[in-house]
Design a protein around this nucleic acid. Structure first.
Length: 273
DNA sequence: CAATCCCCCTGGGCGC
DNA sequence: TGCGCCCAGGGGGATT
């Protein structure tokens, strides 16, 4: 599922219902999802904890409690975190169940790549990917000048650069392709060949695709559901992702598919230079 | 430092 | 209808 629009959609949904709720018990059906504690320690640390906030940084969700541990979650490809206000049949992929004073919070994950960690409320967490995150793609520190300073030093492709979470936190494969299309930049272009002008266009395109993705509630490709279990509605807005072989919406040229850095990459060979 | 490959897994889609 | 293959939004690690 994720890129951060999906994670942000989940965050917003949960932030509306979780604060004030208290965890009564935790059931761990798939222990390997918890990366830095045994199931027993994990359950014991969270029992009796009251949620005070639901935060996001990059593609990580953070449940803030009134106690000495926070819960950090990465949904990876197919994870979801869903609040059930009343008793309900749980999906087969419900791997971790937090029984609350009112309702249940359920971590579901078909491919089971997701990760959960207990972390301290402040300071380094020991979770490498989290501690090294760059500025959020929709945050105030993600500026043209910031990107320019890194871009000049890099010899990588622009797409690899965009997906590097230490550079920009939150951008995923779909939105990287979409932003590059919108800015007219070929994914295989070298960072060093970028002009300030094309960077400004790219910066704007990133903000734009992310804002739109959030507005439409995330992009449902296969397994994405938001914190209420509803699917996102953004798929129809995608210009290149999932449209390989179909005509470019600007010029009609067939959208190309290539593997770049192991990731499926789509672009218009006419519009993107 | 950058690129590639492989891994973690399940299930949908498609060709035969 | 069934089987086997290929594919997938993420990211970490080993290797070249």
């Amino acid at each position: 599922m994720p890129k951060f629009t999906e994670v942000e959609t989940v965050r917003r949904t949960l932030a509306a219902v979780l604060p004030g709720r208290t965890i009564e018990t935790v059931h761990v059906a798939l222990p390997r999802l918890i990366k830095n504690a045994s199931p027993a320690d994990f359950a014991a640390a969270l029992r009796g904890q009251t949620v005070t906030a639901v935060q996001r940084k990059g593609k990580y969700l953070r449940l803030v409690f009134d106690g000495p541990r926070h819960l950090l979650i990465h949904l990876r490809m197919t994870g979801s975190l869903v609040y059930f206000p009343a008793a309900a049949d749980l999906p087969k992929s419900a791997h971790i169940i937090f029984r609350l004073d009112k309702g249940n919070l359920v971590y579901c994950d078909v491919r089971t790549f997701g990760c959960l960690w207990l972390i301290p409320p402040a300071g380094p967490t020991g979770v490498k990917g989290y501690d090294t995150l760059g500025p959020d793609a929709n945050g105030p520190d993600f500026t043209v000048d910031y990107i320019w300073s890194l871009l000049k030093k890099s010899e990588r492709t622009v797409k690899a650069f965009l997906l590097d979470q230490t550079v920009i936190a939150g951008l995923g494969n779909i939105y990287a392709d979409e932003a590059l299309f919108l800015a007219g930049i070929r994914p295989s272009r070298r960072c060093g060949s970028m002009t300030k002008k094309s960077l400004v266009a790219l910066h704007e395109a990133i903000q734009s695709v992310l804002a739109e993705g959030i507005t439409y509630g995330g992009t449902t490709i296969r397994n994405f559901v938001n914190g209420s279990g509803r699917e996102g509605g953004n798929r129809k807005n995608l210009a290149v992702y999932g449209r390989e072989g179909e005509p470019c919406i600007k010029c009609g040229t067939a959208v190309q598919y290539v593997k770049q850095g192991g990731r499926g990459t789509r672009y218009c060979p006419h519009c993107q230079k």
